[in-house]
């Protein structure tokens, strides 16, 4: 895999010229948005003044209405302006960084992991109303078929007052990889909140939850501290979760400080890494010509693409050769 040390050369040789063009575009959009803000403030104030003078609305309502109209127009302009920039950003930065790390990988900015794949993982069993995602990367890493993308899965809920709001079930990175062992059963690994906060009582409560199979107690105390495991075959779950793999998962969690959920279904490993932000989206306020920006994307993508190596999934056993 490509090293950070050679990224600087690649940055100046293959990216800098395009980034300059993109940076000019970013500055143009910022200038345009600033201009739009000034114009909308003036128009909004005039509209508000008109509503008050014409006695159509009381001052407070007139102010709220004109602010809302101005805000909606601004959002329309913002979305219109950023759409093209976003696409260029992904072509010139995200795709190039991915190809720098591994040229064989295929990047598709529009698509994501399929809804059916999300459901097959069995990690999330709650109903949802909105499924969205982007930045699908697929390919073969060290002989292992791999796919990942960002996902955002939400459910529309009503609170006590009947107000609707969106509740996020999952936002982050969804990773699917062919596992290096064959298995027929299902195994699920979730972050362990109950046992950590309630101790033995939490563990007892976990054993009552049989929706994902039996509780699997593992012989690695550190792993047990972080995760709770369910499965429908005590032996096969341990066949999948060897001591080595448990250690790799702990290391990955400690290194990235993110909540992880995993499942092993149909000889595939599904990994969800929680991020409560958009991962590969442009930030208009940050300059693209700063190397640190590109480095951040490189480190994130290297971490994701490195999962196959990190978990040693390329070391296939006999039945999978």
């Amino acid at each position: 895999m490509a090293k950070l040390s050679s990224l600087l050369d690649y940055y100046y040789e293959s990216m800098y010229a395009d980034l300059k063009v993109l940076e000019n575009e970013r500055l143009r959009i910022i200038a345009k948005l600033k201009k739009a803000i000034y114009v909308l403030i003036i128009l909004g104030m005039s509209f508000c003044f008109f509503l008050i003078q014409g006695k159509f609305l009381i001052p407070l309502h007139a102010f709220l209405l004109s602010s809302m109209v101005a805000f909606l127009i601004y959002m329309f302009i913002y979305r219109h302006e950023i759409a093209g920039y976003k696409s260029l950003f992904k072509d010139n930065i995200i795709e190039k960084v991915i190809h720098f790390i591994d040229p064989s990988l295929v990047y598709d900015k529009e698509h994501s992991i399929l809804e059916s794949e999300y459901q097959q993982s069995g990690i999330f069993s709650q109903n949802y109303d909105k499924f969205s995602g982007s930045d699908l990367v697929s390919g073969v890493i060290n002989g292992v078929k791999t796919r990942f993308s960002t996902l955002h899965v939400e459910e529309k809920r009503k609170d006590k007052d009947g107000k609707e709001h969106w509740y996020t079930h999952f936002q982050g990175l969804f990773f699917i990889v062919d596992f290096n062992k064959d298995f027929k059963s299902k195994t699920f690994i979730f972050p362990d909140f109950a046992e950590r906060s309630l101790g033995v009582l939490g563990s007892w409560m976990q054993s009552l939850n049989t929706s994902k199979g039996e509780l699997i107690k593992l012989d690695n105390s550190e792993f047990e501290k972080f995760f709770v495991v369910y499965g429908d075959d005590q032996i096969e779950s341990r066949y999948i979760l060897s001591h080595t793999l448990m250690e790799k998962i702990i290391n990955f969690k400690n290194k990235n400080k993110k909540n992880l959920s995993l499942s092993f279904v149909n000889s595939k490993m599904y990994l969800c890494v929680d991020y409560n932000k958009e991962l590969f989206e442009p930030i208009l306020t940050k300059s693209l010509l700063k190397f640190s920006q590109i480095k951040e994307y490189f480190e994130l993508l290297s971490m994701i693409i490195g999962i196959v190596d990190e978990f040693k999934l390329g070391d296939k056993i006999w039945s999978k050769r």
Binding site: Q234, R238, Y239, S242, S319
Partner: peptide, 27 residues
């Protein structure tokens, strides 16, 4: 070599089975 790899896989399965057994005995 083929036999050796089959044995390797079986050893992995045996190891998992022993761990599962020991956990159930501990419980």
């Amino acid at each position: 070599l083929h036999l050796q790899h089959t044995l390797n896989e079986l050893e992995e399965q045996i190891s998992a089975a022993r761990r599962a057994y020991n956990q159930s005995v501990t419980d």
